[in-house]
């Protein structure tokens, strides 16, 4: 299989078929910021922080680099006034949900995002899906999942399963960028009728 040649931020990059633009950029040391990307999980494209500009035959498009496969002669721009502005707005929208998330705050500072630009929406969950996907893809336990849809979508634990599995795992806890997951877990525990979750 011959390597695919593409240009990222002016540098010529060789990539293998099936790689994403994000991976190709990382292979030459260009770091594209991302929130919902995780080494052990399939790319999901939920956070949109990894948005880049790609140029195919003179036409430019905005795509999420974690999900966009490399193609020959692709021209990618990971930093430009336009991209930076889009990332800043995305981060401002995410910060409206979780203004105190350290990860979001650091990224927001880098792009000059104003955390007070949008009215606060105290959902705390930014729907990155890390916990849901980690539980399903890596642990294969399926304890936590998405509930409802649209603006009402949130994460929810299955209480009976959580009582059995979570105390000894909790591997999803450090993944959550906003700590909404931990809150959801504690809430599930508090609402679980028969008895408190076993702590062993």
């Amino acid at each position: 299989m011959s390597p695919i040649l593409l240009k990222i931020d002016g540098a010529k990059v060789q990539a293998q078929e099936g790689m994403s633009v994000w991976e190709a950029a990382a292979s030459v040391g260009i770091a594209i910021p991302s929130l919902c990307l995780h080494g052990q999980l399939e790319p999901y494209g939920a956070c949109r922080v990894c948005m880049v500009e790609v140029e195919v035959k003179g036409w430019t498009r905005l795509v999420a680099s974690c999900c966009y496969p490399v193609e020959p002669d692709l021209v990618v721009r990971t930093r430009s006034t336009k991209i930076d502005k889009i990332r800043k707005t995305i981060l401002e929208l995410l910060l409206a949900h979780a203004p105190d998330s350290p990860q979001l705050k650091a990224m927001g500072q880098e792009y000059g995002a104003n955390p007070n630009r949008f009215e606060k929406e105290a959902s705390f969950c930014v729907h990155c899906g890390l916990c849901v996907r980690y539980c399903a893809e890596v642990k294969k336990l399926n304890v936590v999942g998405f509930v409802d849809r649209g603006t009402r979508r949130e994460i929810g634990f299955i209480p009976e399963l959580a009582a059995k599995e979570c105390w000894n795992c909790k591997e999803c806890f450090p993944l959550c960028p906003t700590s909404a997951l931990q809150a959801a877990y504690v809430l599930t525990e508090a609402l679980y009728a028969p008895h408190p979750f076993p702590k062993s």
Partner: peptide, 12 residues
């Protein structure tokens, strides 16, 4: 099928 999936569909 996992319960989370059923829950997702039933609420969607």
């Amino acid at each position: 099928v996992p319960m989370t999936r059923i829950q997702h569909i039933a609420t969607f």
